[in-house]
């Protein structure tokens, strides 16, 4: 749960979402990730650190470069959590289907 919370917090920032979108295309170095943004490399490095700590991305050691990539398990966990919320809501709405069916079968008086 703590991880999931961190993951959602990490996703709340538009720059971090853009970084994840870039990483969805494949591995990239900090330098490559910084390119599209009007912010400094240390600022990008901070975002990357948040993403790494939340478990959304992984970093490989390749000399000083340490390229980043998406952590598939983290993304799956978020998807699964949203799926659970959908299921929970669906339990209520399935009951509402029954309520609506009962309303339909009750002869209604003319309403104004």
């Amino acid at each position: 749960m703590a991880n999931l919370n961190a993951a959602f917090s990490a996703l709340a920032d538009p720059t971090r979402r853009a970084i994840l979108a870039r990483l969805a295309l494949g591995e990239a170095t900090v330098m490559e990730l910084a390119e599209p943004f009007q912010i400094t490399q240390p600022a990008i490095s901070r975002h990357i650190k948040v993403l790494e700590q939340s478990g959304l991305i992984l970093r490989r050691s390749e000399g000083a470069k340490r390229p980043c990539r998406l952590a598939p398990a983290a993304i799956t966990e978020i998807d699964r959590w949203l799926a659970m919320l959908r299921e929970a809501l669906e339990a209520n709405y399935s009951r509402l289907d029954g309520v609506l069916a009962a309303m339909d079968s009750t002869p209604t008086q003319d309403r104004p």
Binding site: L4, A12, W81, A88, N92
Partner: peptide, 14 residues
Amino acid sequence: RTAMLATGMEHGME
């Protein structure tokens, strides 16, 4: 929103 999605909704949206 993050807090609601991550923790609040399990308590409370419905």
